[in-house]
């Protein structure tokens, strides 16, 4: 059970690769951090792993998740969860329905699905907010709801795109610990990109600096 990148690199069509080939293995429950200045292609790296690359980009190398080659799979079949710096809750759905959207199809029956959503809300300290408009939540509540929505889909790996950068200082430590806790208890590999050294340290995993990999 691990996320394995092997000589992975992304290049715009007919252009230089954005960063040198990256080889990395992330163990279950571990959070690896990729660092680098903005513009170097950190988010594009996550797009390549998650299957969201824009037209005109091509990637070489391979991505394997628990031994499955992700390359030929569309994003929705990869079982790779994604968290952004904005929570990106769906604006037309209530908080609970956002979680239900993520909840795996394997949980069947109205009552069972509702119960699973309520349990997740409780665990995230969001009890009683099932019917709330996501736009009325605080930043911290939104971040926790987004993590719960992602986890309910039972991902086999998690990608974090500067997930804490929009939170204020008081909340950051709290949400970081909450996120790390869940990743460890689910025992899934996670890959985070950030330019904040504090975030990287707090995740306690290996840190890769994209600029320092090797000369371009």
């Amino acid at each position: 059970m691990s996320l394995d990148l092997s000589t992975l690199s992304v290049a715009p069509k007919a252009g230089e690769p954005l960063f040198p080939p990256l080889t990395l293995s992330v163990a279950p429950g571990q959070v690896a951090t990729v660092m680098g200045p903005s513009g170097i292609g950190k988010s594009t790296l996550l797009d390549a792993i998650g299957g969201h690359l824009a037209h005109g980009f091509a990637c070489t190398g391979s991505v394997q998740l628990n031994g499955r080659d992700l390359g030929p799979l569309p994003a929705e079949a990869r079982r790779v969860g994604l968290l952004f710096q904005d929570a990106l809750l769906f604006p037309h759905l209530s908080v609970g329905d956002n979680l239900a959207f993520g909840l795996s199809r394997r949980v069947r029956g109205r009552a069972a699905r509702r119960a699973a959503v309520e349990t997740a809300l409780d665990r995230a300290g969001l009890s009683g907010l099932h019917d709330r408009d996501p736009a009325t939540l605080s930043g911290g509540q939104r971040a926790r709801a987004a993590l719960m929505r992602t986890l309910l889909a039972e991902p086999q790996a998690l990608l974090l795109d500067e997930p804490f950068s929009k939170l204020d200082v008081a909340l950051r430590a709290d949400i970081r610990a909450f996120t790390l806790d869940h990743i460890q208890s689910r025992a899934i590999p996670a890959l985070m990109v950030t330019h904040d050294a504090e975030d990287a340290r707090a995740m306690q995993g290996p840190v890769i600096d994209l600029t320092a990999l090797s000369p371009r």
């Binding site: 998650g50 929705e76 079949a77 790779v80 969860g81 990106l88 769906f90 604006p91 959207f101 991902p155």
Partner: peptide, 25 residues
């Protein structure tokens, strides 16, 4: 566009992304 990506990462295929996320939003 990240709304649609978020839905894809939750396992929603292209038609569900269109009908359940994009059109209502």
């Amino acid at each position: 566009p990240r709304l649609s990506r978020a839905a894809a990462s939750l396992g929603a295929g292209p038609w569900r992304r269109l009908v359940a996320v994009k059109l209502p939003a």
